[in-house]
């Protein structure tokens, strides 16, 4: 069966995916942001489930998460906000969060809600491969929810193969040894790394994240990968200018 994510990667190149923190800047902004991103031709969206202690994130996503939590965002509230999302939004939707809130919600219950809501995949950076395979894989698969794994510049080829085997939908290629929101830009080291992974001919499409902030870094990332994800730069734009910035922001990336 071909899902929304598989269809997207079969039919399009240079996939633009946007990450935002659910419930930020305002508690009720989740759906309006999704609607606007789809209208601007964004291909896929990662909805950030905020966590109090986001270890892999830089200051921008920490701050948006803290504010979203202060405004009352929870896992339950997010599913409530998203319950009719598929009547308006047909691009693939991914929830990205940390494992503890999912564990407290109940992994099976979480997957069930994702399936009912029309969420296609989940990214949980701190759920390790071995634990997933031992304890949770059967649950995710029974609800048809993809779990997306990350690879980094330090990941060995052998482990990349294992993560590729376990992933469904796409592989998340972390661009640099860094938390999210690094503004350093990409050099030769990233270009070589993107090409090295591309040459491995993984079974999953490759989407680059971390450090993508503008047209240039998006182009560099998609030169060797199937798509790229922009998070902190988008949240910064939302913080400065509100939701009206979305058309300008997306056009600025892809023109």
């Amino acid at each position: 069966m071909s899902t929304r994510i598989e269809q997207l990667f079969q039919n399009k190149k240079d996939i633009l995916s946007i990450y935002f923190t659910a419930g930020y800047p305002a508690h009720s902004d989740t759906l309006p942001i999704l609607t606007s991103l789809q209208a601007q031709g964004v291909d896929m969206v990662e909805i950030g489930l905020p966590f109090s202690d986001p270890l892999a994130d830089g200051p921008v996503i920490q701050q948006s998460s803290t504010q979203a939590l202060a405004l009352g965002m929870t896992t339950e509230v997010l599913f409530e906000q998203l319950k009719d999302v598929r009547s308006k939004i047909d691009i693939p939707l991914v929830i990205m969060g940390y494992f503890n809130p999912v564990l407290q919600f109940g992994v099976a219950e979480f997957c069930k809600k994702c399936a009912e809501t029309g969420i296609d995949a989940v990214i949980l950076p701190d759920l390790p491969l071995t634990v997933y395979e031992r304890e949770y894989k059967a649950i995710f698969e029974s609800y048809g929810i993809h779990l997306i794994f990350l690879i980094t510049p330090q990941t060995s080829d052998e482990r990349i193969r294992a993560l590729d085997q376990a992933s469904k939908g796409f592989i998340y290629l972390v661009s640099t040894a860094s938390v999210t929101g690094s503004g350093a830009g990409f050099g030769q080291a990233q270009a070589d790394y993107f090409k090295r992974i591309s040459d491995m001919k993984l079974q999953n499409p490759i989407v680059v994240g971390f450090g993508i902030k503008d047209r240039e870094t998006f182009a560099q990332a998609t030169a060797h990968a199937d798509g790229a994800i922009i998070g902190s730069a988008f949240i910064n734009a939302l913080s400065d200018q509100g939701l009206e910035v979305i058309p300008e922001f997306v056009q600025g990336i892809r023109g």
């Binding site: 950076p125 701190d126 390790p128 990350l150 330090q154």
Partner: peptide, 19 residues
């Protein structure tokens, strides 16, 4: 050998810290 004390412990870390 898995890093657990009973059901507690393990290594729930982002892939960036795996190496």
């Amino acid at each position: 050998e898995w890093g657990y004390y009973g059901t507690f412990g393990g290594a729930y870390i982002p892939e960036m810290l795996y190496p």
